[in-house]
Amino acid sequence: MYSSIIISVASIGLAVLFYSQASAYPLAASRLPMLLAWAVGGLATLVIVEELFKARRRNKIAQAAPEAAPAPDDNAVLDSAMIPPILEAEDEGPKPIVWSAALPFAAGIIAYVTLIPYVGYLLVTPVFIALGLAISGTLRWVPAILVALGMTALVWVVFIWALYMPIQLVPAFFE
């Protein structure tokens, strides 16, 4: 619940930023952006209010019957066998972030894109794939590297050979 409050606050910030920038534009260019900035700000405020309401209600329920919620009875066991995972997730709200996996993976992607203009696409891509597969323990190093080379070759054939994609292919100092 805190995450959606943080996002709402950030949205209000964005709305304020857009609103102040739009005030310098001619009327026709600023009309809709200003209107939308108000809409975003208003909706974000409503989301915050809604979340706080929910939190208060949850607190009340927790105080009224602290042990009722988690205790699984016979019925619940039977239910969980029948209800698909998607629905369970729906009831419990969104999945929590697994930082230990999400963070390095996201950092890996950012590093990958950062390095393309310097090291070249044909070098970074197989490295990214091989590292991803090997570090996660999915494959051993040798098969990981082979898979990485295969995947890169496939992308090369489709996008670079057939479609002339003008991306930095080799390290920048080779050119």
């Binding site: 999945k95 972030i97 996996a101 999400a102 993976f105």
Partner: peptide, 8 residues
């Protein structure tokens, strides 16, 4: 990212 989270 979700798949990477479940990779193990």
């Amino acid at each position: 990212i979700a798949l990477a989270e479940q990779a193990r």
